[in-house]
Simulated scan of single mutants.
Amino acid sequence: MDDSHIPDETLTDMVHHLRPAWRVRGLERVEEGVNSTAVVEADTLKGRRRVVLKPSTSDHPLTDARARAEPQLLSRFDRESDVPVPAVLGSCAEREGVPTPYFLMEYVEGVTHDHARAPELPRSVRETVFREAGRNLAALQDLGPLSAVGDLVGRDGGVSVLDTPDSPSYDAFHDWLLDAYEEALDLLENGGYFPELTEDPTRFADLVPELRAYLRATVPDLPPPAPPTYCHKDYRYGNLVVEPDTGETRAVLDWANLMSAPPAFNLAIAESKLLKPDLNGDADAAAGRAGEFRRALWDGYAARRDGWTFDGATRERIRLYRLAFRLDQMACLPLFADIDPTLDDRDARAAEHRAFVEQYI
């Protein structure tokens, strides 16, 4: 089913399929995201309850395979780690006549902050978000290591690293990283991921030769990373339910975008996503905030993960891994400028991207 809007009666049927004794009293659509995720009010044998129904409506094979892994991963993290995740109440992988997969999970009370407004939050709240991000990523990664590098998908009732001609697995993470960089640079030469939305398809093309030469020379000589493990590639404010006054994380959401990668890569991506609002503005002020919040993230991670240190080799890898996030942002600039009010000035955002990558070349 390609249409992301599933009728209310179909959503109600999905809930009844997973919980036949429940009676749905109301549905409230979740605006963020591409799927017809809904908060459900239902009468249960134990009284009125709020839960969340999350179906997948994508026809893309990789997105579908990731969606099949999400309830399995959530259940495992709930059982085997102290990462705060919603409990899964039921799931369906295949069913005729309705979009699949879909699953039901508990509703977690709290707030989800708009990342564009994050700089307006009290500093103590943001420091808590970053520190707990470090702790949560450490707890997640303690469940590894995994056997290969690549996307994690659901197949044959289990979770595995995808290995296809279009999305191959890798034995060495830096081989994967260099291929990912090469793909991003190819896109930058031709208008990015959304060339139909850009008015200047060669906006960053002049940077590509130097970046390509730099990465080809640098990535193979990076110190070897730690073994691959679970990596949440979309750890950001929009995927966190937090206590409003303190910033304490009550739930980490959206586990359909998981991969197997070294811990330092996840730290670099999570840091970049959580700092994204600060990166759109005054450079000196942003640098000061970034240093404070990065220290909170690293302190939280090191305190939770025995034997981990942010030594020179780890810092060197993290610095280069940050470039992966930035190249992806550059390739997505036309789309983000259309949907994100903090990115409406494309020339200003492009200038910030240029200033960042010029630190490397």
Rank of each mutant, 00 (worst) to 15 (best):
A350S: 15
G144N: 04
D175A: 14
R250K: 12
A139Q: 05
S147G: 12
E183A: 13
D64T: 00
V83C: 07
T37Y: 10
P201S: 14
F310T: 05
P223E: 14
S36R: 04
G191I: 07
H113Q: 05
A303W: 10
R155I: 02
F173A: 14
L258E: 03
P99T: 04
P99E: 06
A290S: 13
I269Y: 04
V85W: 00
H5M: 14
R236I: 01
G191Q: 06
V98Q: 08
P334I: 02
E196V: 11
M1N: 12
L45M: 15
H353F: 14
V219C: 06
G312R: 09
S4I: 00
A67S: 13
D59L: 15
G110P: 03
V108M: 00
G238I: 00
R79W: 08
L240H: 01
G291R: 12
R315G: 02
V149C: 12
D151K: 11
E106G: 08
H5Q: 14
E96A: 12
L89P: 02
F265P: 04
A268W: 01
E271L: 15
I361F: 15
F310A: 14
R289V: 15
E106W: 00
T229I: 09
L335F: 11
D13G: 11
R95S: 05
P225R: 01
R79I: 01
R304D: 13
I269K: 07
D156W: 07
S75F: 07
A42P: 02
L197Q: 12
T112C: 10
S167F: 14
G26Q: 03
R203A: 07
H174Q: 12
R126A: 01
A226H: 12
R354E: 15
A42S: 03
Y301W: 12
Y230D: 04
D311N: 11
L89M: 10
L89G: 04
L18V: 07
L121E: 10
A116W: 11
D78F: 15
L279I: 09
E196F: 14
K276W: 15
P262L: 01
G238D: 10
D338V: 00
L18Q: 11
R212D: 15
S56W: 02
D2F: 09
E96F: 03
T37G: 13
I269D: 03
A287M: 06
L197I: 01
